[in-house]
Design a protein around this nucleic acid. Structure first.
Length: 295
DNA sequence: CACCATGTTCCTTG
DNA sequence: CCAAGGAACATGGT
């Protein structure tokens, strides 16, 4: 679940459930996810600590903690990697297979589960310093974004994944934003015109905002029976929310929703990119003619 | 067996 | 120091 919108929805769900909870005990089942914090430090710092806040920064979750003894607030930084999940459940509820970390709250507990263990839940907050502006915040300015892009020859799609330029865009929403802006993913970053920079700036915000809005309308409940923890790829089907909200990502060979041209897939920096070769022509500008086709 | 997967970091190479 | 490309991480699904 890992791009900005998913993390945002998760934080909104999680925040009231962890706010003011005291961690009675920690259990680290996979030490790699707390690195570089050691298990001894993790336990020492967190046991007895109270969670006094939870916010999102880029794709990170930032927990503010009031330590058992100390006065100084500590930060606990979470990241879901590709497959991480976090939730709060009754202790009688069975745990999933790949639990990485548990916090005992008394009646219930916080669970961080991640079957690929690419994520993190650590006291090391240095990753936050490398993040660029929040795309949905007012500190994200088209002019700054454009200036930053001027430094790179690399394809714009690849630079959208650079968290130091703008924080929170991942592989899915990078394709989505470029489609929305009508810009080729292959266009070298420094070649974007000022107009394209503005279009892309706007498209990033629109695509992320839409996803947060839609994600917020989906029940996040850990309904009994299913292992379903998230709105993401609904466990029981329900016409698959995931498919219908995305306009280009994972739609290889399917007709472009705007012009009917088959969507193409290419690989950039070892990641898949999906785009419409007509609506997102490198030469830009010209692409307008549309023969709308029923999908 | 082959290839693919929402992410980040480390290691080369130029 | 910087840009860029690729492998690695770990566990699946198809």
């Amino acid at each position: 679940m890992p791009e900005l919108p998913e993390v945002e929805v998760l934080v909104r769900y999680l925040q009231p459930l962890v706010q003011d909870k005291t961690i009675r005990r920690t259990e680290v089942r996979r030490a790699r996810v707390i690195a570089p914090t050691t298990e001894a430090d993790f336990e020492k710092e967190l046991t007895g600590a109270k969670i006094i806040g939870l916010i999102r920064r880029g794709k990170y979750l930032v927990f503010a903690l009031k330590p058992a003894r100390g006065r100084q607030t500590k930060l606990l930084v979470g990241h879901l990697g590709m497959t991480g999940r976090m939730f709060v459940a009754w202790k009688k509820t069975a745990l999933p297979k790949h639990v990485a970390v548990l916090f005992d709250f008394g009646k219930d507990r916080f669970v961080y589960e991640d079957f690929r263990y690419f994520g993190r839940l650590t006291l090391d907050h240095s990753a936050l310093d490398k993040l660029g502006p929040e795309p949905l915040g007012k500190e994200f300015k088209a002019a700054d974004f454009g200036r930053a892009l001027k430094r790179f020859n690399q394809a714009i799609k690849v630079k959208l994944l650079d968290q130091s330029l703008v924080a929170g865009v991942g592989n899915i929403y990078a394709s989505e934003a470029l489609f929305r802006a009508g810009i080729s993913p292959k266009l070298p970053a420094r070649r974007l015109t000022d107009q394209q920079v503005r279009d892309l700036w706007k498209a990033i915000r629109a695509v992320l905002n839409d996803a947060v809005r839609r994600g917020s309308t989906i029940p996040l409940s850990f309904s009994e029976g299913t292992d379903g923890l998230f709105y993401f790829g609904s466990p029981e089907g329900s016409a698959n929310f995931y498919e219908e909200r995305l306009k280009v990502y994972d739609r290889y060979h399917q007709p472009c929703l705007r012009c009917g041209t088959p969507i193409e897939r290419i690989v950039q920096a070892a990641r898949s990119t999906f785009f419409c070769p007509h609506c997102q022509n490198v030469k830009g500008a010209a692409a307008k003619p549309r023969r709308n086709k029923k999908a």
